[in-house]
Design a protein around this nucleic acid. Structure first.
Length: 440
RNA sequence: GGAGAGGUGGCUGAGUGGUCGAAAGCAACGGUUUGCUAAACCGUCGUACAGGUAACACUGUACCGAGGGUUCGAAUCCCUCCCUCUCCGCCA
């Protein structure tokens, strides 16, 4: 997805839980090395004026020192009032000066926070330059493309012919962009999701069923606000949105908590629907159910110590690839370039599976190391026995989605119109192939 | 949806205008005693930011759900909001 990062001034209202206590990025980096922040923002297409931010922060710092001194004086005088009534008049005078400065301080803080809200995460050294998915760096390919003695159909055609995908009724009942899995299709999809969770649980993941709605603070904390505000379905009359991914509810799970360092990493998985408005994506990949308003996903989330996040990122990647390998789906791994990565990301891999009907590779999963970006916003810290403290790092990775089912349909279709079920899923489907409905 | 109760430090729980960043207990940490464990006793024990230090120490400010108000001074009084819990009703 193309990034829309960096739209300062595009107000999303009073968004987020951020009250100024946990900077979006470590504000000390801005203070000590504004050029670094500036270069990063520039590379990521973030339009926040870092010079302006720096100036405001400096003014804020100086003003804060003044205000604190004045308050100290006020507190001393207040105390004196108990024995010396004359002090009252002096305090009153002082208060006027103080109030003016405090108001300026509040204004500055608000402005600074608004700017900080839009600052993107830093980038890993090896993130490729580029502006779109065309610039992603191919890393490796696994498996072979299936060969066909006929022209393979895409999942839309297959789904219709087998009667297992119903987009027409999805549109009738909900809207275009919603769909039904029907019969063997629903069974196959359920099988995939159940199997994927089972595999992850065997690798130390804890299984979750999470809320499918989350409040603004949670979306803000996970970085979906303000950066992807137009992607979320807001629930009318509620401070709630439908989740765009269980990442939001799984990472938010530990908001405002201090995790025991020795117990990390925490590995979580959940299966949820994911709701996205896909505003601004009209005309892109509309065929089939590749880009829809509701899809389903088994997610991997990791909370870990900062120095472990690259390792955990690779661990999630290995899990994703393992699942596709077990399914026998040919795929390639790409390292996502700057322009194709969301603002919260530090480093991201996508997996693109082969889609025989589409005759090309298409994104099925993604895996992002967010470093401390979410942890700062959500105030998720760790503490170790030796007293070390800090913000944890989080990894957010797909395990499987409906798109993987689509890849199965396209890659394992047969000339007779049936689809062969990958072996690992057969214990969960109870059948080895999907056959067309009998003609009456 | 109807009725009520309440939000204080890791937990329990005092605290109705200053000496309260906050009693007490528990938990935790350090120590003494002990053949070991337990117990007992002594001590330490919130967070963030700014200043300060080689690093500690230390100093200041803020924080008792959130925001605003009254006051020289607010955990404490007033207003608004949020949240949680209990009971009743309905219900997968």
């Amino acid at each position: 997805m193309a990034t829309t990062a960096g739209m300062p001034g595009c107000s999303v209202g009073r968004v987020g839980r951020y009250t100024g206590d946990s900077p979006m990025i470590d504000i000390r980096i801005l203070r000590e090395n504004p050029e670094l922040v500036k270069a990063n923002a520039a590379r990521r297409g973030c339009r926040v004026d870092i010079d302006e931010l720096y100036r405001k922060d400096q003014e804020y710092l100086a003003l804060t020192r003044e205000v604190e001194e004045l308050r100290a004086e006020r507190n001393r005088l207040s105390d004196e009032c108990r024995t010396n009534p004359d002090a009252r008049t002096r305090v009153k005078e002082l208060k006027q000066v103080l109030t003016d400065k405090e108001q300026r301080q509040t204004t500055l803080k608000t402005e600074i926070d608004e700017l900080l809200t839009w600052l993107p995460n830093f980038l890993a050294d090896d993130v490729p330059d580029g502006t779109s998915d065309a610039d992603n760096a191919a890393l490796r390919v696994w498996g072979e493309k299936p060969s066909f003695s006929f022209k393979p159909r895409d999942h839309q055609d297959i789904g219709e012919q087998l009667g297992i995908i119903d987009t027409a009724r999805g549109a009738k009942v909900a809207q275009r962009g919603f769909y039904y899995w029907v019969g063997a299709g629903a069974q196959l999809t359920n099988a995939l999701f159940f199997w994927a969770q089972k595999e992850l649980i065997q690798r130390g993941f804890t299984s979750f069923l999470t809320p499918c709605a989350a409040k603004q603070d949670t979306l803000f904390g996970t970085g979906y606000l303000p950066f992807f505000a137009d992607q979320t379905y807001q629930i009318a009359n509620e401070n709630l949105a439908l989740i765009g991914t269980s990442e939001q509810t799984l990472v938010g799970y530990h908001a405002d908590e201090i995790l025991t360092a020795e117990q990390l990493p925490f590995r979580y998985t959940a299966f949820t629907p994911c709701f996205r408005t896909e505003a601004g994506s009209w005309g892109k990949a509309v065929r089939g159910i590749f880009r829809v308003h509701q899809f389903h996903k088994v997610e991997q989330i990791v909370f870990c110590l900062p120095e472990k996040s690259p390792e955990c990122h690779e661990m999630c990647q290995a899990n994703e690839e393992y699942l596709l390998q077990q399914l026998g789906i040919n795929y390639r791994v790409v390292k996502v370039c700057v322009g194709d990565m969301g603002a919260p990301g530090y480093k991201k891999y996508d997996i693109e599976a082969w889609f025989a009907g589409f005759d090309g590779y298409r994104e099925v999963t993604s895996n992002t190391n967010l470093t401390d970006f979410q942890a700062r916003r959500l105030n998720i810290r760790f503490k170790s026995e030796d007293g070390r403290k800090g913000f944890v790092h989080t990894i957010s990775a797909t395990a499987v989605t409906d798109r993987v089912v689509c890849a199965i349909l396209e890659n394992f279709q047969q000339e007779d119109g049936t689809v062969i079920i990958p072996e690992v899923l057969r214990p969960y489907t109870g059948f080895v192939k999907i056959e067309p409905p009998r003609k009456k």
